[in-house]
Design a binder for these strands. Structure first.
Lengths: 336, 336
DNA sequence: TTGTAAGCGTTATCAG
DNA sequence: CTGATAACGCTTACAA
């Protein structure tokens, strides 16, 4: 391991000077010296020891990307293609801006706090569902953090989506295609949060057509292939509706599969609209009509926003909202 | 930030003693002292600064999980559900064994070497495709590393799969169901590696039935929805085969979708066998008959094996091979 | 059983 | 423009 000292003695200067040229502390050192030192750095293959830097500067340039472990769906986090797309954006942006990404699932708030202190994390991106205890604790300290796709209170910094509009667009499309009885399927609805908003959009659209939502048209189902397929089989029994609005493509795909198992076909018998427009929306047969969001871009936005907070706490924004749009494919049938 | 010193002075002992009880260096300190110190640690909310520890012990307990960035498929790494499942296993195991996971895509070998030194990484897990230059460089230094699902030389430590058997099982199943002309679709075949093995299995099975493989039955296609669907549309034109063996479920799903676009249905017109048995295998219609592997378990195995290398370089194994089996679902039709 | 002191590689302060 | 020197929080000989 070659250190600053090695470089210094190779060139015949003090460690301080080497440090200054490394950290771009220009002005403070002569051009020819910079030249010589850079050459030595190159030749010796010097790489800064970031642990040491973190120690002395109490800033690690490490961002924690955290998922709260829900026991019922162990590993589900990574399996969900939504998170893959999100991570892709987060990782790329962090890397380009000179940050490192430490990924971890956690059980408890204490876990998270330990992690934070263990590594002097510069910031935190939280994905998934967190009990509000986490936020009260996090808000009480000063490491910036931010939520993506959590079901969450307004006070917390986050990258949001036009969820209500999304719900509205998906359901309105079904209504325009002649459907009148439309089921709403998504993870259990929380008081605040994404799903609540999408549900409101669902209601908005129904209302616009003079319809009113009813309890037995709303189904709660956890994200996951097995459970959504099971729900699909269950829904195959009902004959009093013609369409389903699902709050995630992965759910929609499972539903289609379950319906199929029971001989109900999409879109001939039942029309389905999804949400997200992930790759899988084009892998199902029929391809899924869905509400599009740019998940990867959302990851980028999250990372950008967090870094803005870290580097310049003043002017950084607290919340941003990303747009949605409807993408028509093959899973909706026009009723004559 | 509360440090060892704070704990020490709170209890009225030296930092060394505190350090000893923290690091479980028992024997060296009296029971009642241990008691008092632990109490103080608890009360003050002490958390070890791992940067400092890494600095002094030149071991960080951080494992780098690395993907080589192939420009043509930016972000593809994360999108691929295979990697999601893999990561899930890796993360869980690392965490349980007290390691931290730093994820990063890299452009070049130099990038990787910098990362390694920057953080004193204790080990490396590589996923994806790497030029052999990487391996020669990595083998030349002494941080343990390991490959999962790369297309790779034998000398490198890795978690393998019964790829040849997998190819054999999938194709044999098609043969048993009466198919005689079977296409092979996968990413471009390299001289060594996973796909080569699967292809050998394909040949094995054909040979067993007195058939011989021919060049025009082998298709190369990069992993990705668009490209595999496009290939599906292309394959819809050929009428001289009845079945396809795809080396990944995600490919199989794309193919089915593309075939569908052109009015060729699975399994009525064409039978398809996939590989991996990811969640999506149950989301396609028809559900995919596929060669199963336990991807998450493979991630666990990889992490376990790497840690064994790190903590006990002697007895750790160099390579392990995980089993496969065929899972029959609905994408293969029996020819009368 | 406990304490002292040096040192890991870096940055920051201040003096030359 | 350059260089001592201290400090970051921790571990580890070695000493008491």
């Amino acid at each position: 391991m070659v250190t600053i000292k090695d470089v210094a003695s190779a060139v015949g200067v003090s460690p301080t000077t080497v440090s200054n040229v490394i950290r771009g502390n220009a002005g403070r050192v002569s051009p020819e010296m910079i030249e010589r030192i850079n050459k030595a750095i190159e030749e010796l293959g010097y790489t800064p020891n970031l642990s040491a830097r973190a120690l002395v500067s109490s800033s690690s340039h490490i961002i924690g990307v955290i998922n709260h472990l829900v026991p019922s769906e162990s590993g589900g986090f990574f399996q969900d293609p939504f998170h893959g797309a999100l991570l892709s954006g987060i990782e790329e942006t962090l890397r380009q801006k000179g940050y490192y990404m430490m990924m971890r699932t956690i059980d408890s708030c204490a876990d998270l706090m330990s992690l934070l202190n263990n590594w002097n994390l510069d910031g935190l991106i939280l994905t998934g569902i967190f009990p509000s205890e986490f936020f009260t604790q996090l808000l009480r300290q000063d490491t910036p953090f931010l939520l993506v796709d959590s079901y969450v209170l307004d006070e917390v910094p986050q990258v949001r989506l036009e969820d209500r509009t999304g719900g509205y667009l998906g359901v309105k499309h079904l209504l325009e295609m002649g459907h009148r009885r439309i089921l709403f399927c998504g993870p259990p609805i929380y008081e605040h949060g994404v799903l609540r908003e999408r549900y409101k959009g669902y209601c908005d659209a129904l209302q616009e057509y003079g319809l009113s939502p009813c309890r037995e048209d709303v189904y709660g189902v956890e994200i996951g292939v097995d459970r959504s397929a099971a729900l699909g089989r269950e829904l195959a029994k009902r004959r009093d509706y013609t369409a389903i609005f699902a709050t995630a493509d992965i759910l929609a795909a499972g539903l289609i599969s379950g319906l199929n198992d029971e001989g109900r076909h999409v879109p001939e018998d039942i029309s389905v609209v999804g949400f997200d427009d992930l790759n899988i929306a084009r892998l199902t047969s029929p391809q899924l009509t869905t509400v599009h969001q740019d998940v990867t871009l959302r990851g980028c936005a999250a990372a950008d926003m967090l870094i803005a907070h870290i580097e310049n706490k003043q002017e950084a924004v607290h919340t941003i909202t990303m747009p949605v749009r409807l993408v028509e494919r093959q899973s909706v049938k026009r009723l004559s």
